[in-house]
Simulated scan of single mutants.
Amino acid sequence: MRCAHAWVNMVTVYVAPVPAQIAPEWLLRLSDAELARADRFVRLPDRLSYLMAHVLLQFALDAYCAGQACWRYDADRYGKPYLVSPRKDIHFNLSHTTGYVAVALSRRGPVGVDVESDARAEALRDMDAAWLSPQEIAALAALPPKDQDTQRVAWWVAKEALIKAVGLGLRISLPSVVLGANPVQPAHLPDAFTQPHDAWQVSVKALAGYRIGVAAPFGVSSARAVTWLSTDLSPGSTPILMFTQQ
């Protein structure tokens, strides 16, 4: 099975809104562990978002590698997922929030993705000191009030994508990940990232009331190359045929 994007330093991000119902045949592609984990979500919207993120992962891998397979993965001791079959050379990450899901794939190296509703800005506003650096707080204060919440959500998904890419989660202090405002790119990263900050690149996209951040270590001399694709996950649709460029 040959991957369609094996020829370039590229991250491909697949995104989809969460439908009100899940096609039963799609659930057959998930593992028993995924289904059991979904059952632990108390709220139906959370359960649907989790399931659809994992369904999207199956379809995204099919599209990326131009062939359907039973994709299975495991997680390392820090909880970062990795493929175990039928191949192991594709890095991936997935994210879900109420109403929207995203999957990022790369053959170049580790990748992280995060999706969040623009409405998250209100909650973020009340805890700036807990996740923003002093430099970012100063940059935020210099922005017009109408732009501050947009900047908050963009920084949030970018930081989440970065720490998910490196795979250490909350072991990394968010204020230690320092981002510029325009563009949203790393200005300082802690030692856990192992590479200088300018080796990492971030892309943030606004889509249908959500912000999606993706991060990967493309290398100091590499141009950013992110492809954004979307699909419809409503029952009766055919996702492999319906991925479209965003």
Score class of each variant (00 low, 15 high):
82 Y>R: 02
69 A>P: 07
74 D>H: 07
69 A>D: 06
70 C>E: 06
86 P>N: 15
86 P>Y: 14
63 A>P: 00
75 A>H: 08
72 R>A: 09
84 V>M: 15
62 D>Y: 00
63 A>G: 01
61 L>T: 00
68 Q>R: 13
65 C>E: 04
84 V>H: 05
70 C>Q: 07
84 V>R: 13
91 H>A: 13
82 Y>W: 05
91 H>K: 09
93 N>G: 15
88 K>N: 00
77 R>T: 13
91 H>F: 14
78 Y>G: 06
63 A>V: 02
79 G>L: 00
94 L>S: 02
82 Y>H: 04
83 L>Y: 04
84 V>L: 09
65 C>Q: 00
81 P>D: 14
91 H>N: 13
91 H>L: 10
94 L>M: 13
66 A>L: 08
61 L>H: 02
79 G>I: 00
65 C>R: 05
87 R>S: 12
76 D>E: 10
67 G>A: 09
70 C>Y: 06
66 A>I: 01
80 K>G: 08
69 A>V: 02
74 D>V: 06
66 A>F: 05
86 P>A: 15
71 W>E: 00
94 L>N: 03
85 S>K: 14
73 Y>G: 03
71 W>Y: 06
92 F>T: 06
87 R>G: 13
80 K>D: 09
84 V>C: 12
95 S>F: 08
64 Y>R: 00
92 F>C: 02
84 V>T: 15
80 K>H: 11
68 Q>G: 05
78 Y>H: 15
93 N>E: 14
86 P>S: 15
68 Q>V: 09
63 A>I: 01
80 K>C: 09
73 Y>N: 01
87 R>T: 12
72 R>T: 13
95 S>Q: 11
78 Y>C: 07
72 R>W: 08
61 L>D: 00
76 D>W: 14
75 A>C: 13
69 A>I: 01
70 C>G: 03
67 G>L: 10
69 A>F: 09
64 Y>T: 03
96 H>K: 02
73 Y>W: 09
91 H>T: 09
92 F>Y: 11
71 W>K: 05
76 D>Y: 14
89 D>H: 02
69 A>M: 05
80 K>W: 10
92 F>G: 04
87 R>V: 13
76 D>P: 04
74 D>N: 07
75 A>I: 11
69 A>E: 09
76 D>S: 13
81 P>I: 07
64 Y>A: 05
80 K>L: 11
94 L>W: 07
94 L>G: 03
92 F>K: 06
95 S>G: 11
95 S>M: 10
81 P>F: 08
75 A>T: 11
90 I>Q: 11
78 Y>N: 14
63 A>N: 01
61 L>K: 01
67 G>E: 10
68 Q>T: 08
65 C>T: 06
85 S>G: 14
63 A>S: 07
79 G>Y: 07
77 R>P: 01
70 C>P: 00
92 F>Q: 05
71 W>A: 02
82 Y>Q: 03
75 A>E: 12
62 D>C: 04
88 K>D: 01
71 W>C: 04
88 K>E: 01
69 A>T: 01
95 S>A: 14
77 R>S: 12
